[in-house]
Amino acid sequence: MSAKTTEKKQNAFLNNPIVKAVGTQRLIALLALIIIYIVFGAISPSFRQYSTLVSIFDASYYIGFMAIGVTFAITTGGIDLSIGTVLVCSSLVTGALATKYNVPIALCLIICILIGAIFGLLNGLMVSYMGLPPFIATLGSMMLSKGFGSIFTKAQSVTWPQATEAAGWFRNIFKINIVGANGMSTPIPTGFILLLIVAILMATLLNKSRPGRYIVALGSNIEATRLSGVNVAKWQTLAYIISGTMAGIAGIAYAAVYSTLLPGGGAGFELDAIAGVVIGGTSMSGGYGTIAGTLIGVFIMSVLKTGLPFIGLQTHYQQVATGLVLIFAVFMDVANRKKRN
């Protein structure tokens, strides 16, 4: 009797139109995001400030673009570990081009994205045509990109042009400072609009287009997809190209917000992005990907990144807290799936 009612209740919950539209995992993630934000805000008054919100957006751009890209690689059942160092590599190289070789910024931004795309292509070819396991292939290109960035800049840090300089206009893509009547400038996180547009485009590509459907299909069963006459290698490569390209865009976002790039850095960035993807509900074993979920996961990561120092947690406790949230979020997803099956 009681079992029946709980089952009914559960079904009612699962069949609720809102829950259906958003998806349970995404709903859990969204709730978690809101709860974390409220808890941080309750503990730290300065966390509630507008400028902190801008900082959360600041941190979400580079993680966000990487995460949107890597969602494609993960959906194919693979992984892209190179995105963090590709971000740093592309941004280092083009930052050096801009400051040391006086290449126009617009051209630099294009080159930055191109470098990402080339690494993506390399990953794709290694995985699909050479048959390397994605983990190893992208681990290799992670080291390659780390090395190339350092070689090109002679292992020196690069500082992109400041907002006050003419060449610093690209920063306005991500943040515009509006100077009010009292002379105080208010930052507007315009990068969120770009992130949202890219997310919508990529969500359409992943779930509403033919290439996207192939990527999902080969992620759930590559042999069956191949046997049904789909050029699996081609679409698998595309997924990695998207992943790399997005890492290139993330490189611009990182430079626009944090100015300075350190050669040899970037390893570890990819884990923030991958954590965001997984929290959002994309399956690590492939065959299912959700960009909307990824976006929510990214904001959980950037709220944690920005907020943990604000609530007075020391460095090492911050890492512990982030790890716990990740494990808990993914456990919720796993438990949920088991129940449904």
């Binding site: 941190a59 944090y258 350190l262 570890g268 120092p309 604000f310």
Partner: peptide, 14 residues
């Protein structure tokens, strides 16, 4: 936690 620009920037903001 790590020597990266974004973490130090967040510390400063805090």
């Amino acid at each position: 936690a790590q020597v990266t620009a974004e973490l130090s920037s967040i510390d400063a903001q805090n």
